[in-house]
Design a protein around this nucleic acid. Structure first.
Lengths: 138, 138
DNA sequence: ACAATTAATCATTTAAAGATGATTAAATCC
DNA sequence: GGATTTAATCATCTTTAAATGATTAATTGT
């Protein structure tokens, strides 16, 4: 697994809100039921996303959560970042500060490029691109 | 983080044994001290590697652990696999069985290729390639 | 045989992720 | 204003990863 359970919940819920047809807030209950995940846990996850400005939340009747950013402008990384420490800083697969005493090794630069590929995916892929079932132009 | 702490320990210890100059068993104590990780915990990790045939273990005085496979012929994946479930089977980043109801989406195939890149790195990179400081021919 | 050394095992603890249940506070509707 | 609906918060529990400490069993050297 590359993503934690929590980060996966966050992505799935964001995706749900991106794919939804009516333009209104959706309750945690609705989202959790559709995703088949614990409601209270999801509630906390969504709260984090709301605090981060990715969702808007509204209390009371007709309340719920909505995307605060158009799905086309929302990179996966923005969502995942709230729950997942990206490797970014980590030069070395093994977490060593100095790798090979200055010279470095072939495998390390290869790894760096792999890690960058992963990060680039999350940075450059938008939520919209992950939603095949959406209406509206691509 | 892409690897669990435990998988990282396993890789580091294997690397230690690959880079070592004397051809003799090395004690858990030595390895743990060099890596600065808990000895008893590492002991269990090494035990798993020994059971998997990656290391040989010897008890008693002059005992310890040694590589059972030449570092040049030992892919990182072989080591990591003992502690890390590779995503392999997972078609979908979000863990959904059916992705997009048959059609799939651009992002999913992109993700699949990213995941394959990661796996390929571990499958094709050998422990030897990760050891810049080793003697012997590349 | 015996003492010393070392991996292997066992029992327990700690820390973090994940999940559950109940309560509180904001917003709406009447 | 009062009842209802909903997110937010609080307290607790479970599970898993990580770590610790002590004991056991195999091997060696004398």
């Amino acid at each position: 697994m590359i993503l934690s359970q929590t980060a996966e919940y966050a992505l799935q819920a964001t995706l749900f809100l991106a794919e939804v047809e009516e333009d209104r807030p959706y309750r945690v209950g609705e989202i959790a039921a559709s995703m088949r995940v614990p409601q209270n846990y999801l509630s906390k996850v969504l709260h984090v996303l709301a605090r981060a400005g990715i969702l808007t939340s509204l209390r009371g009747p007709r309340g719920g959560f909505q995307l605060a950013i158009p799905a086309e402008e929302l990179p996966l990384k923005e969502v995942v970042r709230q729950f997942h420490q990206f490797t970014g800083e980590r030069r070395c697969l093994l977490g060593r500060e100095r790798c090979g005493e200055g010279e470095g090794c072939a495998a390390h630069s290869r790894w760096e490029s792999v890690a960058l590929t992963v990060e680039a995916f999350f940075a450059e892929t938008t939520v919209a691109q992950l939603s095949p079932g959406r209406k509206g132009p691509e």
